[in-house]
């Protein structure tokens, strides 16, 4: 669980976070999106106690982050660009992390094998991390983030700079973590990934969350009033004229045997459009209401 109330953060005189409010329930995956420099990483660094904040309050797993140390918060963190000691091997690095976490030798070995298997780095466990690709480092970072089996995990751009296969691996790991009931806050620029995994989405702008909802509701809210209708043959021009003449139709665009029809007041007039098409006896092969992708919603909100 994560709860942020009225969070404010200044870098010198620049206000980066301006009364940010956010709430993530247990077991939820929250997609945190926003343009570069809008404060996503700052928020994440505050939650992990890496940087301080000016005002407000933050709770992780029902604990005030100012009152508890990071170990007690039961939190895992993958920074945007995970940095390791490049001369160490994954085995040595996880051993080092395990020592900090006060694990005994048996646990250290069990954890090592379990995590390296999960992030598919077993074969490379004795190679220096410095020789790893960005994707491998990202997976190594996930292994460290979940080392302590944290209840809440913060992932900052986990799939950025990865090839499609690497991205899929990361998405699969996140899905696996969700199945285990973890609460996850994830930021990414790759909105397609967020669509695949997130229960709730928040768009950060001007240091605040400007839109927050689940993906279905967002799609409904930002639905486009356009129907794409496909017919078996090209539509004759007099039929198109009759559709254009309807008072609720704003625009009709023809493309071979397809019509794109923009209407006003979609809830009321969508049915009227269907009715008119049936009345014209030009039965369609398919009628699809055009949906905004998350990317289009994001661009519209971020304008």
């Amino acid at each position: 669980m994560i709860k942020i109330n009225n969070l404010t953060k200044y870098y010198k005189k620049t206000k980066v976070l301006d009364g940010l409010n956010l709430e993530i329930n247990d077991g939820e995956i929250y997609g945190f999106i926003g343009q570069n420099g809008v404060g996503k990483s700052t928020t994440m660094n505050i939650l992990t106690k890496i940087i301080k904040f000016n005002s407000g309050s933050c709770f992780v797993n029902h604990m005030d982050i100012l009152k508890e140390n990071i170990k007690k918060l039961n939190l895992g963190y993958l920074p945007e660009e995970p940095r390791f000691y490049n001369y160490m091997t994954p085995k040595e690095y996880l051993y080092f992390i395990g020592k900090i976490c006060n694990k005994n030798k048996i646990d250290l070995n069990l954890k090592l094998n379990e995590l390296l298997k999960l992030v598919k780095l077993e074969k490379f466990k004795n190679k220096p991390i410095g020789t790893f690709s960005r994707g491998m480092k990202q997976r190594m970072g996930i292994a460290v983030a979940i080392y302590n089996d944290p209840k809440t995990i913060i992932l900052d751009e986990p799939s950025s700079a990865l090839d499609p296969e690497g991205r899929k691996d990361v998405i699969d790991i996140i899905k696996e973590l969700k199945e285990k009931g973890k609460t996850i806050l994830v930021s990414t620029h790759i909105l397609n990934d967020i669509e695949k995994i997130c229960d709730k989405i928040g768009i950060l702008k001007g240091g605040k969350i400007v839109i927050e909802d689940n993906l279905n509701n967002l799609m409904k809210k930002y639905i486009q009033p356009i129907y794409d209708i496909e017919f078996e043959y090209s539509i004759k021009s007099h039929y198109i004229k009759q559709i254009e003449d309807l008072d609720f139709v704003e625009m009709v665009r023809e493309n071979n045997n397809k019509l794109s029809i923009k209407i006003n007041n979609i809830e009321k007039n969508g049915f009227n459009l269907y009715k008119k098409i049936i009345d014209l006896e030009i039965l369609p092969l398919s009628i699809i209401q055009r949906k905004n992708s998350l990317e289009e919603i994001f661009i519209e909100v971020a304008k």
């Binding site: 890496i50 140390n69 990071i70 920074p79 995970p82 940095r83 900090i100 983030a145």
Partner: peptide, 13 residues
């Protein structure tokens, strides 16, 4: 400078 402290701190160093 290299931000190598971030992971150790995130696990409670």
């Amino acid at each position: 400078k290299n931000k190598t402290f971030v992971f150790p701190f995130s696990v409670g160093s």
